[in-house]
């Protein structure tokens, strides 16, 4: 499937009319569903608000920072991530069964869904366009180092790469390595280092000098 802003197969002027047609189609469908009483506009607004303002990668960053600072929590997270994540209040839709994957100097984990767009919503929010795009879904399982280059970084050749294809209802969260030079940092300060991509495995946490 093509992305929105990264569409290499359509011209942009052509896209514009297509999107207008889509806009009309969505509006018509919502009208019909509302008129029939199947959907409540207030519920629709709440769904949108939830994923735009409440559920997103800052949730996952809290989980990671807690694991970096609390060894007992880290152990619980790696043993059974779903209840450990629920301790921080994150649970539910598209995160019913979560497994945490620990990055080490010898092993880098990367998560993909080659068949659709499976992604741990309660901790990362809705997936970005690139995660749902054909280039990522096709390339991640075959050439993950090539994907990492697209993201601007390389791993040492001797580092093992494990790619997790989310083909069932298990959702995966990468626990990245805590950056060096952060001894004594508070959990809250560490959270600022945890990027969304570092929890998918297509990025690394920020380094201490990158945050104010």
């Amino acid at each position: 499937m093509t992305g929105h802003d990264h569409d290499h197969h359509h011209h942009h002027d052509h896209d514009h009319s297509e999107l207008s047609e889509t806009e009309l189609r969505v509006r018509a469908l919502e009208t019909i569903l509302t008129e029939k009483g199947y959907v409540d506009p207030l519920a629709l607004g709440l769904l949108i608000e939830t994923y735009e303002t409440k559920v997103g990668p800052r949730n996952g960053a809290r989980v990671v920072a807690r694991a970096w600072t609390d060894p007992a929590y880290r152990a619980r997270l790696l043993k059974d991530a779903t209840p450990a994540i629920a301790e921080l209040g994150y649970a539910g839709r598209q995160g019913e069964h979560i497994v945490a994957l620990e990055n080490t100097p010898a092993l880098h984990n990367m998560v993909v869904c080659t068949l659709c767009s499976c992604y741990p919503w309660p901790v990362l929010g809705l997936p970005p366009v690139w995660y749902k795009s054909a280039p990522y879904r096709s390339k991640a399982v075959k050439d993950p180092r090539g994907v990492l280059k697209d993201f601007g970084f390389e791993l040492p050749a001797e580092t093992n790469i494990r790619v997790w294809d989310s083909t069932a209802e298990i959702r995966y969260l990468v626990l990245p390595m805590r950056p060096a030079g952060t001894d004594g940092w508070s959990e809250q300060r560490l959270e600022a280092l945890v990027t969304r991509d570092s929890m998918i495995g297509t990025g690394l946490p920020k380094q201490p000098h990158e945050v104010a």
Partner: peptide, 28 residues
């Protein structure tokens, strides 16, 4: 799509919004 040859690179979008248009919000 796993392993299917694909010509383009993965293109991350800096500061990507949750939705890119109002119709996406509504469709979701």
């Amino acid at each position: 799509m796993g392993g299917v040859a694909w010509s383009g690179p993965v293109v991350p979008e800096p500061d990507e919004p949750t939705f890119h248009a109002e119709w996406e919000r509504r469709a979701f």
